[in-house]
Amino acid sequence: MTPLIEAPSDRLLAGLKALLADKGIVTAQEIAERVAQTDRASPAQGGRMVARAWTDPEYHALLLRDGAQAAEAMGIAMRGLPPLGVLENTDETHNLVVCTLCSCYPRAVLGYPPFWFKSPGYRARAVRDPRGVLAEFGTVLPEARRIRVVDSTADYRWMVLPQRPAGTEGWDADQLAALLREGDMIGVTVPSA
């Protein structure tokens, strides 16, 4: 018999799905829905949340208090997912998110992580040399700005609320959302107008 580890992955997946259905754990339809939900998630969703927080003080407060509720308020399904914590960048402190153990990432609001987020290089260096990593992303912060590295290790997922860039006075939430890239919400970059 072929060892399980050497079996073709498509057959393994089909076998696993059939067992899950047979045992009444999860149906094929539920799996398909969750895959579709994961595929729909993208940094645009996090971008809409950030842009709304920049233009709506009540939503800003909700986002910092309970990120999952704030995501739900934008129509993003968070049921059964880890809580979402939101870290606000200020004139005093810049936040950078890493998962040194693996690849914990707020997929519900940012989609699949960029390839480098899971790389051993980013994971080892972000925590020890954040300024060096930021510089490689072209991000240079004022010397006095504190850098807080948030190592996402357990049951939370973390997203950064960047500072609203100068020169965006009077912009509406859609215009602001279009400025945001995934790196801004991980903290490796900052948005600019």
Binding site: L96, V127, R128, P130, R131, G132, V149, V150, D151, Y156
Partner: peptide, 26 residues
């Protein structure tokens, strides 16, 4: 119980570049 715990990076690595490391710990 899960806690957010803050560490002084230079107490871990003398050449550390950041100002604070915050980690979820049980």
């Amino acid at each position: 119980a899960l806690y957010h715990v803050a560490f002084e990076p230079r107490s871990i690595w003398p050449d550390a570049g950041g100002d604070e490391i915050v980690v979820e710990l049980y």
